[in-house]
Design a protein around this nucleic acid. Sequence first.
DNA 1: CATCTTTCTGAAAGCGCTTTCATCGCGCTC
DNA 2: GAGCGCGATGAAAGCGCTTTCAGAAAGATG
Lengths: 361, 361
Amino acid sequence: MKRRETTTLDDVALAAGVSPATVSRCINQPASVRAEKRERIMNAIERLGYVPNGSARALASRKTRMIGAIMPSLDNMLFGGPLEAFQKEIGSAGYTVAVACSEYDLDQERIHVRNFLESQVDGLLLVGARRDPDIYRQIERQGIPYVLTWISSDTRKDHCVGFDNAAAAEQLVEYLVALGHRHFGMISGFIEHNDRAEARYRGVRDALARHGLSVPPDQLLQRPFDPDAGRDAFHLLVSAPNPPTAILCGSEPHAYGALFEAKDMNIDIPGDISVTGFDDMWLASQISPPLTTVRTPRGRMGRQAARHLLAQLRGERLVAPRPIETTLVVRKSTAPPRPISLSADSGFLHAQARTSAKSGS
Amino acid sequence: MKRRETTTLDDVALAAGVSPATVSRCINQPASVRAEKRERIMNAIERLGYVPNGSARALASRKTRMIGAIMPSLDNMLFGGPLEAFQKEIGSAGYTVAVACSEYDLDQERIHVRNFLESQVDGLLLVGARRDPDIYRQIERQGIPYVLTWISSDTRKDHCVGFDNAAAAEQLVEYLVALGHRHFGMISGFIEHNDRAEARYRGVRDALARHGLSVPPDQLLQRPFDPDAGRDAFHLLVSAPNPPTAILCGSEPHAYGALFEAKDMNIDIPGDISVTGFDDMWLASQISPPLTTVRTPRGRMGRQAARHLLAQLRGERLVAPRPIETTLVVRKSTAPPRPISLSADSGFLHAQARTSAKSGS
DNA sequence: CATCTTTCTGAAAGCGCTTTCATCGCGCTC
DNA sequence: GAGCGCGATGAAAGCGCTTTCAGAAAGATG
């Protein structure tokens, strides 16, 4: 009376008149089973609607074919694309992707790592390289491969598939300095717990230093990555007594916010102030003015991260990937600064007056 | 000489001087183990760095604590937010989320469902309700709960956590008709394999029908959900001999594309043509002109989907969730149509001329 | 203090699959 | 035709955990 809930491999074996071992082989290495039997087995599988049990499989084979991915967020259209690319690439090799969000919080990240290790994932995808060394210890203890994205040139170079954020930021700065800018503001992510943000700021700082310049501490604003935060920061920056002539945004949402706020404040970009982004998401080229930024090929990064992980999973020797190239994209949100008005204060008010005048002409 | 690779529950039991069963209980129902032993065990776990093996656990308990989520895409900032909300909610109940992308393709979706079933996920999150009944059969055969999002009022109502897309579209149409519009175009997703797109179109069609109106077949354009496609479609629509005075976009990216293209073509929105979106993503309020659209509370939907799934996982009786409320958000991309010029052709050229004239004044 | 409950605990039997390992044919070679 | 090598198969031993089930320990009761 008690009937089996699920049909198992044994049922298939029975139905096909072979041993369970053969059924298993038939599924995993069909070539090693004689054609005639293979057919019988496949028939039985079909007939019984057999679905292998992944847990049992994982337990016996010590492989889950699952990769854990921990992203800072999925909501800001920055990580979704690369994640999808990663998933597609690694999925075509038969792996499944599990995701979790850390909300840019290293403690949450640690919990998710732990969970994934417990789930016996075969590999791990993380964003950024800086985190408690203990986490790396745990990962390595389980001996599973991992890849660090969005960053390169770190101590764990071998695992990094990403951009040289600092170099990219330097490009931007060099360009602005060449245009004649000397007063810089920056809207950055939170530097302390985010090594991508930190690297970008470092690039800015170092590049400026080469020209004897710097971002005044009060003109470096750290904000969450969303347009509204960008708006506020922009407002603050341009309302300062001696506003910058160029504002570097550590992420593109910040830049969008800045551009929208500029419009509301009737500040002309790039006439009054130059603004740069970072990432070149699709809106960058559509927004007005189109945004000068740095293109980070994120889809390619996702695919390459997958390939890097797959290589490790195949047991290949780990070779440090080359950083993914970024390119400066000059559009219309940057221009030479206005001829300097020597009055240190009320720069913004001048700008506003000028803007209105101009738009009326 | 051969040393164990991993430390297992048995090791912990040995170290703590108790039986494996007790260790297992100590992990799963700590309350059922005497405090003194519990402490010994926890110590041993800590000392040995024991990490439970999820596969073994899943095999023995028949629970993976994993939910499979299949999204059409992660790249278009539409699904990321809700997915994150879903993950957060269901993660706090101890579940992990695995994702896969179907790319709006039902065949891919079927493969992913199959993979997830094989992985023994404890539940499934899907988008939309229309798919091969065989898929539902497979899911139900394994007896796992599932939830269908982004849609409601379908035959599988009990599983739907989403909006009434048709009703929302009707709201939009009623509003436009009230404004005086009689000539409509629509930029839609692909209707045949996407029941959300289909429902929205249906809403439009039915609402128009009530007023004796319709979308001419050649003014219903089906396009992939990205702004560039929206641009193209908009261009086509307004270049027709008798262009619509109002264009309904089945998704917001379409609307953004339309707005950008309008700017490039020097068409005034809403002066020349009204445009509406669908979803109210963050850009809708920032873009110029701000977009009239329908707000679909997607974060709430994600959370509610999680709760609905959790209720099922707890074995509660399935009750049909109420559709999630949508609201019409009127902004500046819509206005009454211009007084009708009776010349049927070259409407767009007139519009263009007028626009230039106006912007020069 | 004996007896009856109520907690706790341990032994042992799986969960459904993979993977040696040994065996069995079978086609070849000499 | 004996001997060999090789590919295909089956038996059986786990993989590391959970979960009855029954027995032991600890409290409660009269």
